[in-house]
Design a protein around this nucleic acid. Structure first.
Lengths: 263, 263
DNA sequence: CCTACCGATCGGTAGG
DNA sequence: CCTACCGATCGGTAGG
């Protein structure tokens, strides 16, 4: 809100300033490069929050300017267009998802274990970048076609990875051969991404609980009956995949806020 | 859908007109009540399509006026506000969903069979009211709080019904007792509603195929291991629930259009 | 030359 | 349904 003193003119020289910069962050430093970067982040964070609550098209630059205590025109010192804000937010969420993908690739495990890891990790990424990820999912189409392509090119690897995981699982007789990998992937990612319509950190379910719950439904939904029989039943499968036993559950989840739209 | 002609005022003059109305639709009729109603529907249909492709906030009344060949101001002869258009569209989708719910309630069947019916019916309703349902799901929050409440009040019955179905299934030992009914319901409805981000009638998968696929994943994801064992395995369960056998599948589903956002 | 904005206004469009 | 507009606000930009 309160903008820093315009200039701390001539605090001797920059070198001298840096000399007495004893601990942590120096106010004088912030007036320059670091402060600018900080302001930038503040603007993007405010934009994310307002895009999330009012939608991209429903948000004006004035809304964002008001939130950070600047005049509308001053926002354009930091960006070239409103869409830059959306793109930056989408990239944040996107980067987090790509990190997750890289980790999943690095981990060598059987297909179903990887599906569990993917679902749980997706929930974790989604909840830890909640605002940005919801804006990604809901406002993606407001990006320019060129920027959509940029994101889609890398992001396609994510769904492709899950699809390939399902195909591999089918080849190894671990996943139901009757399933269509593409449709199943749409269903799973849809279930995960739809969290942007109902998830709220104040809700009763924790990200970890949601992750296990969704993974449980997905993995039992995918597993082939042959494999389930071979491993000694569904509970044995879940055990092996590291699912918490029902005994470990601490009470029922109470209804949370944000009733979405009733469907 | 098509409401009857507003008024059949004085069946004399209209009769005369109707006399020379040789075949099908009479132009003179259209100039009055029926034509007005038809224009109204044309406007709502155009609005639904444009809201769907550009988003509610991204759509101007001028966009809709151009699409139907009117001047912007003339649209307000048919509606009082832009939001009326959204509300009308939402109600169309909503009414279809409530019809489905009524049918599901009327049908007495065991919980898992009802889950299958619900999932398949939801996909059918969603795909047959594709534009309206996608607008419902994506633009719901742009309705006024009062109108959101109107929809939510009845619409909440839908998710409530699924949640209760899951609870009943758990009591009857047919559904995995470890599942949280509320989270499972969010997962299932999320998976279904997320169709608004990828489904397209030109896609490779037909609504019926999608319905069976999602129902298969959901029902095997929900079923308790005890019940599956009791009935003689997962395949026996699916058989009893009327799922098509893999043999009946006609070739793999090819990738469709609309790559959504890569997740 | 730079950082960090300001006050004012651009051409257009919003819903009504 | 059209013509003729309104108050306000839209995203974005001017010079300083």
């Amino acid at each position: 809100m309160a903008t820093r003193p315009r200039k701390r003119v001539s605090d001797t020289t920059p070198v001298a300033r840096r000399a007495h910069s004893s601990a942590s962050i120096d106010e004088t430093d912030l007036a320059n490069g670091a402060g600018q970067q900080r302001r930038r982040e503040e603007i993007f964070a405010a934009a994310a929050e307002i895009f999330h609550s009012k939608g991209y098209d429903g948000t004006s630059i004035q809304d964002i300017a008001s939130a950070v205590g600047l005049l509308k025109g001053s926002i354009y010192y930091y960006i070239d267009s409103k869409e830059d804000l959306l793109f930056g937010i989408v990239q944040e969420s996107h980067a987090a998802a790509l990190d997750a993908l890289a980790d999943l690739r690095a981990d060598s495990a059987p297909p179903l274990a990887k599906v569990v890891a993917l679902v749980r990790r997706h929930v974790e990424v989604f909840t830890s970048t909640r605002i940005e990820s919801a804006v990604f999912f809901r406002e993606f189409r407001s990006l320019s076609p060129e920027r959509q392509d940029i994101i889609r090119e890398e992001g396609g690897l994510y769904t492709e990875y899950l699809r390939e995981l399902i195909r591999t699982g089918q080849r190894r007789k671990m996943i139901d051969p009757a399933l269509d990998p593409k449709l199943a992937t749409e269903g799973i990612t849809g279930m995960l991404n739809a969290m942007s319509f109902w998830y709220h950190p104040d809700g009763a379910a924790t990200p970890v609980e949601i992750g296990w719950e969704f993974a449980r439904i997905v993995v039992t939904g995918l597993a082939s009956s042959a494999y389930v029989a071979e491993i000694g039943g569904r509970d044995a499968l879940l055990d092996e995949l590291g699912f918490p036993t029902p005994a470990r559950k601490r009470g029922r989840v109470r209804p949370g806020p944000s009733p979405s739209n009733g469907r």
